[in-house]
Computed example of a mutant assay.
Amino acid sequence: MAGKVHTFEEVANHNSKEDCWVTISGKVYNVTPFLEEHPGGDEILLMNTGKDATTEFEDVGHSSDAQEKMKEFYIGDIDTSTLPAKQQYTPPAPSSTANRDSGDSFNILL
């Protein structure tokens, strides 16, 4: 059953114990009624609001029973065009001092 399509901003605004939505694999779940039952505690669900929690969900290795239970909380899909761009890690450029120091150390070792 296809549900309503929600914007990222709309889902991110549901981020409290009284109203908690999470996004996993492009689907939106209202997990508010499950907060007290969640074996990992409500904090972990609350920490995963306002972002795509797919990686965190998969990293835990949820059982097939847990995945089946999720169907109870499904309320729609995320509008992927509203998702923020993922930021990529860019390592800092080495400073010229660091390069000179490492070269001096190398020469001393020789």
Rank of each mutant, 00 (worst) to 15 (best):
K4S: 10
T55D: 12
E72Y: 11
L35H: 06
S102E: 13
S102F: 11
L109S: 15
A53C: 09
T82W: 00
P84I: 02
H14S: 06
E72S: 15
F106K: 11
I24A: 00
S25F: 06
K69N: 13
L83C: 09
D42F: 11
P84K: 01
D79P: 08
D59I: 05
D19N: 11
S95V: 05
A53M: 06
A98C: 03
P33V: 07
P91T: 06
I108V: 13
A98F: 09
H14F: 01
F34R: 03
P94H: 09
L110M: 13
S95C: 05
T82Y: 00
Q67I: 14
E58P: 06
T7V: 06
Y89E: 10
K4M: 11
S25C: 09
G26E: 01
D19A: 04
P33Y: 08
D79M: 03
P92Y: 12
K27G: 00
L35F: 11
F73G: 00
Q88W: 08
A2C: 12
E10V: 04
P91V: 10
P39T: 09
L109H: 12
P91K: 10
G50T: 03
A66Q: 03
M70T: 00
T32P: 03
E58K: 14
K27T: 02
E68W: 12
S105D: 13
K86I: 03
A85I: 11
N99C: 14
Y89M: 05
A12P: 03
R100P: 02
P91M: 09
G41N: 01
D52W: 04
V60R: 13
W21H: 07
G3E: 07
F34S: 02
L46H: 00
M70N: 02
N15E: 05
A12G: 05
E58W: 00
Q88N: 10
K69F: 10
S25E: 12
T23W: 07
A12F: 07
G3R: 07
H38Y: 01
K51S: 03
V28F: 08
H6M: 14
I108N: 14
E58I: 12
A85Q: 12
F106T: 09
F57V: 09
K17G: 10
K4G: 08
D104H: 11
F8E: 02
F106L: 12
I75G: 01
D77T: 09
N107Y: 10
M70E: 00
A66N: 02
S63E: 08
K86P: 01
E37Q: 12
L46T: 00
T54N: 04
D52K: 04
H6Q: 11
A98P: 01
N15H: 06
L109I: 14
W21P: 04
D42Q: 14
S63W: 07
A53K: 05
A85K: 15
L45M: 09
I78Q: 02
R100F: 14
L46K: 00
E56Y: 11
S63D: 06
D79K: 06
T82C: 00
M1P: 10
E9Y: 07
S16Y: 04
F106I: 08
A12N: 05
